[in-house]
Amino acid sequence: MSDVNVLVLTGYGLNCDHETAYAFELAGARAVRVHINSLIDGSANLDNFQILVFIGGFGWGDDHGAGVIQAVRMKTNIGRQLIEFVDKGNLVLGICNGFQALVNLGLLPGLTPNDHRRSVALTFNDCGNFRDQWVTLKVNPASACIFTRGIELAELPVRHGEGKFFADEAMLVELRRNNQVAIQYALPSGEPANGRFPFNPNGSVDDIAGICDATGRIFGLMPHPEGYNHPTNHPDWTRRKEIDRRRGVSRQRDFPVGVRILQNGVEYVRC
């Protein structure tokens, strides 16, 4: 029985609950899938958890803007508890649809504590369509983000139609100044994508793929860490396996980077 408890929000068309819970268990936590309504009616209690995950999917079918209606429902019914949960120093992770929800809840970008304005957005991909592909991500070493600690480059899948990060110039200056831009889309070499499609798959300004709040404890990203929970999730695994075997290297045993991102959160809570 682990000492770190993770609450994975489910219901209303969200759909990455099983693999997100599984990946957190791999990372050493105890993960529970909880329906949004169980949190609202009090049958589940945030006090028993240290990490709250807003998962990917299509909450309310993404109608009227991805993550919008989930944000409305949670703000209206349990907005207070969410703020308290954050203020206690707990962690919040938003993946894809969850990132969109955090942005609409105003938990991100959270330039200062208690600043919960909707001031950045995730909007329709420039390519005009939903897109499933793997991306290379460059981590900002100066960022306070808990989840990206000790990681330089990461390859993860993106699967969205509304992932274009957008904010006005003033806000972007702030985000850069506070090192809240935690991860950016990059070329396979690690060089900035500079908006080049498909390396930057959606036209995000500044290649922004994920941001954290000022404390680094709230993290939202469009790519799916839980989508890389096993070596065979990686598009190149059959090729890498063949190359490794010729070199006499045995099969990859350590966790894929997707799990390591979650592990950072679990270890932060532990110490």
């Binding site: 759909n15 693999e19 369509n129 499933d132 592909q133 799916h224 989508g227 999730n233």
Partner: peptide
């Protein structure tokens, strides 16, 4: 590419 072929984290 328009189809999510990896959701559920099971892609091999």
């Amino acid at each position: 590419r328009q189809y999510d072929h990896e959701v559920q984290g099971t892609s091999v």
